[in-house]
Structures are given as structure tokens and as C-alpha cells.
Amino acid sequence: MAEASLGQIFLATVLTNNFVLAMFLGLCPFLGVSGKLNTAAPMGAATTFVMLVASLCAYGLNWLVTTFHLEFLRLISYIVVIASAVQLVEMVLKKYSPALFRALGIYLPLITTNCAVLGVALFQTARDYSFLQAVVFAVGGGVGFTLALVLMAGLRERLHLASVPDTVQGTALALMLAGLLSLAFMGFAGLGAGE
């Protein structure tokens, strides 16, 4: 919606409508990679970066397919272009910034098929965001994802030391924790709705 201000979009995507805890996007790495705190932060950073790339690609592609009335190619072009763009970025990083590549590189291929990344592209299209709004949306989505991931990793690391019942171990526990976090995040509802 053109009505939402940039600040509102950012707040909403980070807190009120957190990508993971309220929209269920990016659950795959959320449940899979949130076991350890020291991998959670770089993973979050890498995802944020990929989301931004995806958002930019999607903005351009959307303009292209609407201008040429090829809307039926939107999805297929999104997924193909986003995947290739990430590959390209990975190669460029590897060549020019090996340090950064070592920090983020191992996560990049994993992220391409993350629902949150395609989600950014699809939701910004569905909501008709302008260029700036789309960028803020992507960064907000990434920051929200990182926040959820880091919180979750902290809790799971702590629970490694606890005597969690066997039945609850594993994915079931992660889901329940996600539910509790999601419950806590409901406190942000209405934040930034303004007067």
C-alpha cells in the first residue's frame, strides 16, 4: 500500500509482522540453523543481504513484466533471476572479498530457496510497494529474521543444559519455543499505528 510510511513498514516487518514469528516465512533455516548462537548472527546477516538483492531484482523484474504484459512469467522469472543473482554475488564475493565470503558464503546457496527470500519478492509485489518501500521492507524483513533467529538460538543453547524431556526434544521443542516467542511478540501489535 502506498499509504504506509517507511518507518511503519520497517517497524511492522521487524516486530509486529515479524517474518518468522508472524508470517511463518523462513521457518526452514529458522528451525534448522537456530541451534547455535555463533552461526545465527552471520546467517541472519547473509539472509538480510540476499533479501535485499532479491527485492531489488524483483522490483526491476516486476516493472519489466508489467510493462510488457507478461505477468504470467513473474514467478518463474523471480525465482530464476534471484537464484542466479545470488550465485553471481557469491562468485563476486569469493573473488574480491574472501573474508566476507568466508563469513557469509557458506550460507548463500542455502538461502536461495528460503521462503523468506521469495516471500519478500512476492509480498512487495502484492502490496505494490514503491522502490524505497521495497528496500525498507527487505531490510526490515531481514532484520526481523535475524532477531528471531538470534533469540531462538540463545534459548536453544540454554535449553541444551536443561533436562528437557525426551519426547519434547528436537523439532517439537523448537516449534513450541517459536510459539512462545510469537506469543511474546504479540505485545508489539498495533505499534506504530499512530493516532
Binding site: 499509504e3 504506509a4 511492522a12 509482522n17 506504530g192 499505528a193
Partner: peptide, 9 residues
């Protein structure tokens, strides 16, 4: 018309 409500637009 649309505006931000409690949970979403």
C-alpha cells in the same frame, strides 16, 4: 481506503 490497524492494514 486503507490504514494501519491493530495487526495489519
Amino acid at each position: 481506503a486503507a490504514a494501519m490497524g491493530y495487526a495489519d492494514l
